[in-house]
Design a protein around this nucleic acid. Structure first.
Lengths: 231, 231
DNA sequence: CGCTGTCTTGAATGAATTCAACCCATGTGG
DNA sequence: CCACATGGGTTGAATTCATTCAAGACAGCG
């Protein structure tokens, strides 16, 4: 969203407590617990919630660099369960330090506000997809979304998507059953849009996938002029 | 979320430019335009987006006191169209003043961050509803949600919901067609859960409606201890 | 070597959509 | 002040997309 000064960078790093490594599948924090934010250093994680009737909804796939658990900060009890999808390195974030950050580095505070709003847009787009589109566009949109985010982190990564997600979890992300996710995957594969080997997905025709997903292009405004000056 | 000092209150009010009154149905801002935030003083409004295929998704019903358009702030072009549902009084908000607010009143800045995260939770709950629940629970949840928010604004209002929304718009909120919204409304009415006269809905059995909605209870943490001190 | 979890596929079922028609209230112009 | 258009609500019948149920294949793991 913006370029940070060294002081701002240091303050952000100061929020993170020592990192802990979790084994694949470990639950970091369960919904209903005390709402603390976490920072994901390495690996993949996911935010989800389960309902009484046994259904589950995944809200977000977290990639390295993500702050996790922020949505629950205004609540008394966390709304989301955080689970590690691969082996992952995670640290808790200090709330007190976060409070000081808003006071000492207002520009970073404003950027945190913007980041939360960016996540709102992502959720809104997901709402549109799940509420108004069929299964194929939803899956196409998910694959493209993850591909783009991974490229943001590592710009010259191979054009291959290794998903540490079961088809059931993918279904929980886009509001489908595992069975139907499977069928859609096969359809995409048969049409030559993707290739698969186990959980490795290769996007064969990004253009076709984009057409199928039919998602609006969103471009971020970098360094908005109205932000307060750095301190 | 928190109790404000007089200075903080004044600074918040200072964001708003002079109010304009719009007639029912007027579009305040269309998706794709410059992303500015607005403040809704009186009346109802809605945030929505339309897709190429003609489908529309409503993201939020805005009630008096709401900041509108914040999700689009990090973007180059607004993601949401803002439309007035009733006659409504709206003012633009100054971005520069918002930047200064983060610098001068860090506690309010942190509260804005929390508010954006609260909206994320609401969107997450909506995602769960649309992705994993049937039509009846979705409509039940919407009615309860609006009822609760109206009660927050006016605690001794009559227990009646006057919705300035067509059934088509309600469908766009919860991901259904107008036809099906109608059928669900009738079902609820026949079961005695609600009563209707035109667009006025009376909740006859809030308890039944709650069971049908099966939404998790969310309670806000007021005045979190980690917020920076007021200035 | 036998579990267990995941993937795959078919058949039956079901919830919501689509299409179509009609009703009613409101508003508008001749 | 009536005639007619319009927008929203209501209902039935046919259709469709996704779910459910069920069973088998396969890989990895203890």
């Amino acid at each position: 969203l913006a370029d940070l000064t060294n002081g701002e960078r240091a303050a952000l790093k100061g929020l993170a407590e020592p990192a802990i490594t979790y084994a694949r599948g470990t639950v970091i924090r369960t919904e209903g617990e005390e709402p603390l934010p976490f920072l994901l250093h390495a690996g993949w994680a996911a935010a989800s919630a389960s309902s009484a009737d046994g259904t589950r909804q995944f809200f977000k796939v977290h990639l390295p660099g993500d702050v996790m658990g922020a949505p629950s900060l205004p609540l008394q009890r966390a709304a989301e369960t955080l689970t590690v999808l691969t082996e992952a390195s995670v640290s808790r974030m200090s709330l007190k330090a976060l409070g000081r950050l808003f006071a000492d580095h207002p520009r970073v505070g404003a950027l945190l506000f913007l980041t939360a709003n960016e996540e709102r847009v992502i959720l809104m787009d997901r709402l549109t997809a799940i509420g108004r589109r069929a299964a194929t566009p939803r899956l196409a949109a998910l694959l493209l979304h993850l591909d783009e985010r991974l490229t943001l982190i590592d710009s010259d990564r191979p054009s291959i998507l290794e998903l540490p997600l079961t088809q059931e979890q993918i279904g929980d992300l886009i509001g489908l059953t595992a069975v139907h996710v499977n069928r859609v995957f096969r359809t995409l594969e048969n049409r030559g849009v993707i290739e698969r080997q186990g959980r490795i997905v290769k996007i064969a025709s990004r253009e076709t996938l984009r057409q199928l997903a039919a998602m609006p292009k969103r471009s971020i405004a970098r360094n908005p002029a109205w932000l307060p000056p750095s301190r």
